[in-house]
Design a binder for these strands. Sequence first.
DNA 1: CGACCCATTGAGAGCATTCAACGCGTGTGG
DNA 2: CCACACGCGTTGAATGCTCTCAATGGGTCG
Lengths: 252, 252
Amino acid sequence: MTSKGKIYSRDPGAMRCLSCHLNSLCLSADLPLEEMAQVSDIVRPAVTLGKREVLRSQGAAFDSLFIVRTGSLKQVVVTDSDEYLVTAFYLPAELIGLDAIAQCVFPGTFVALETTTVCEIPFDLLDQLCDLSTVVRRRCQQCLSHEIFDERLKLHLLLCRTAEVRLACFFEAVSERFRLRGYSPHHFRLALSRSDIASYLGLTPETVGRVLVSYQRQSLLIAHGSEYRILDLEGLKSLAAANGRRHRHREA
Amino acid sequence: MTSKGKIYSRDPGAMRCLSCHLNSLCLSADLPLEEMAQVSDIVRPAVTLGKREVLRSQGAAFDSLFIVRTGSLKQVVVTDSDEYLVTAFYLPAELIGLDAIAQCVFPGTFVALETTTVCEIPFDLLDQLCDLSTVVRRRCQQCLSHEIFDERLKLHLLLCRTAEVRLACFFEAVSERFRLRGYSPHHFRLALSRSDIASYLGLTPETVGRVLVSYQRQSLLIAHGSEYRILDLEGLKSLAAANGRRHRHREA
DNA sequence: CGACCCATTGAGAGCATTCAACGCGTGTGG
DNA sequence: CCACACGCGTTGAATGCTCTCAATGGGTCG
């Protein structure tokens, strides 16, 4: 398709990644300088999205991966039976579009939850880069594999959990994601609505609300709109770990 | 580590893949002859496992991917809170170990559900092959990406489903997996126990049993031990699609 | 300022779990 | 070869969690 030659000419905007505050978390994390420069070169300048603006629609041809710089997005899948399902959400430095590679089509719609900027990485260029650099290829592989395991285990755990435990797991994970990105793990704004959280966890908005109230009564966390303040992270963690329910299996 | 040269010398056992009955489904599917030969060369002769025998244990160093030739296996994860969770199972031609790549450790124990044979693909060799062949690399990428999306959507769907619908989804998916592999989609043996199925779906064995009885009363499917006969696949599918429950969202 | 969406609260119903008991088949050890 | 233990599958009754439905108030957008 596209000509294969010379995909990285050192242009003025290059080395963008090096100076980016997310540098250490991104796709380019831990890459040697040379490779990081190569990745830098194929990254398009950041795009800004307004709240509720769509980055890519479900079914659109897969052209690029994206990395969140600021703000956040959710992935919404509309199923055959016209259900509206929030299947993922993305915070700064997180990679969008990995699930589109196989089918060459975006499996869901990506919607900005607030004013958001994203870097675009054209996939055909990244693909060429993978051919040239083993390090980059491995890094991509790692990102892919990491998501598989992460998702699988978490979702399987949630399947047999009560609402109270599901939310504890959710906030524990979110808090950790913020912490890794250098934000406070105890106090953050999460632009997902209660309905979004409910959809993501397979609950109803009412139940989510009720559990939040019960958390507040237990002095675990306080929710004010989209502001969340975790008072007792350890308490939340033990709630999340407490195998919230049933199933007394033994080893194989 | 290992020397990079000449990883594919045409040895007598080569072209194994070409003559394998699973050829068209496997990792090697759709590869040009030359690449298929290369993959063939790094595949180790099939290993046989007895029932309940462990292929790799949770936490073991990641060394190889495996492909099921005959039989089946389950992946069991023991969580921090000592829960025993069935997170995946594998039928012939399916790829084991993709979720181990990121952490370089197997995230769960792989147990044979019956007498089973698997092909082993040493990962360091496959990795080298990816460096040499774009086609192989893309194919690996595809396998990885496919799992992400598949799992995510299915599990999120299950989260807000009743037991009746969860099992319908389960059998629809299993039937399809058998069909793709050339077996009857209507009649198959599934070596997973009721407890395994329950764990996989986040239910209790009792509930699984009760739903199976209700299916039988509705003439949807008949279960005799590990033999399953689907009488009304369409009925099962519509049950699975019927958004088994709640949540009336609108588009974004 | 009105429409609409989101969040919250309450009451009732339904579904799945829990707990308990039983029959069956298999594998083990005497 | 047989007895027994054990895991698996099944069934029943009761509890409890979460959904459903409904109504209200607050915030936002047009």
